[in-house]
Nucleic acid binder design. Sequence first.
DNA 1: CCAGTTACGCTACGACTCGTATCGAAAGCT
DNA 2: AGCTTTCGATACGAGTCGTAGCGTAACTGG
Lengths: 208, 208
Amino acid sequence: MQRPTPAPRATGRPRSAAANAAILAATRAALVELGWSGLTLGDVAARAGVAKTTLYRRWAGKNELVVDAVAELFDELRLPDRGSLAADIEGVVLQFAAILDRPEAKSGLMAVVSESTRDEALRARIRTSIVDRQKRLVLEGRARAQARGELPPENDPGAAAHTVDLIFDMVAGAVVHRTLVSAEPVTEDWAHGFAQVLLQGLTGRPAH
Amino acid sequence: MQRPTPAPRATGRPRSAAANAAILAATRAALVELGWSGLTLGDVAARAGVAKTTLYRRWAGKNELVVDAVAELFDELRLPDRGSLAADIEGVVLQFAAILDRPEAKSGLMAVVSESTRDEALRARIRTSIVDRQKRLVLEGRARAQARGELPPENDPGAAAHTVDLIFDMVAGAVVHRTLVSAEPVTEDWAHGFAQVLLQGLTGRPAH
DNA sequence: CCAGTTACGCTACGACTCGTATCGAAAGCT
DNA sequence: AGCTTTCGATACGAGTCGTAGCGTAACTGG
């Protein structure tokens, strides 16, 4: 899950797991109160009740710390079976929007994405900790829809993987853009309209 | 276009327009070389050949400056008539991706979006300088498609506006997510697949 | 052409954060 | 016990922040 400990050594004093959790929780609290730019590692250390040096031993810097703190938020996402593909999509979109609405996710996520444009290692960390981790939702949703007969089975496994990537970018991208860039709320109506376009397309859609 | 000058006074020495352009260009150059977190106003001032105080007289801070510097990049976007709605979408997606691929856009855009989650005024500035400004593309594309008979005319103007917002979030969101979060290139194939899903939907799509 | 007004360049300033170094004490393993 | 690694605390130089002060430049109206 986290990789602040690169290779757990057998000897010596072990790193406190409690401190780890306290630091990540303190990071989220600091994000809520101060936002990304206001967050300082000294402040996080004080909130967590650890020394600043402890923090620097485990994380390379602010970026890596916030990625780990934010990644935990998205593990709450579930794909409850609502009976149809459209309803499943609406459900996960609303859940995702609810998480993105929390201030620690809002200010943290986009900031690390911005930083990752100039840091290959950070990009990889985001990918494995957040992006790839949540693609399970698309895979699960498609499998379920295929079992229901709503989607045809896949023949070409390569094309199937590309489609998963495409759908993930379309769903996550739309919700992120709506919430953070357009800065408008994701309502049930919006989620409904989105699912309809995603499934039926712009042309094939009956005039609402 | 920009609003660093709130109310141009008739008297006194006027603000140098050349300095304005030099500052915004220097900001983009600094974004390329140093990224968001490395960018300092002192450095920008030195690059632009102006005093740091001049910079602070015109912009409230780093956030506002970068919004203005980045907003100019997106004004290049055009919607060339490619004959069909699908081709038009593919064209604008590729253009948008090309701009987002430039380092000054990459690191600047997401950073200010992140900051805007805690700053109402900044959010409004992004909205008017970037978001609302580029919705013209969706409006133009729809009008053209309706003229071609590819899309039905709109009856309810309220619903029509909501659809524009939805499509804008879907298109811009998908490209941004693909480019910055998933960190994968937007190829012609990807743009083609995206346009197909957007128009035909997941279900109505012939198995490629 | 001269007084009034505003922008400009330059320098200096205190406050703050950064990341690191150092050191003695604590906690685990063999 | 002896070894190894972590932990807390403190101190440090470097760098940035945003502002203030001052003399000069540019433009306007009488």
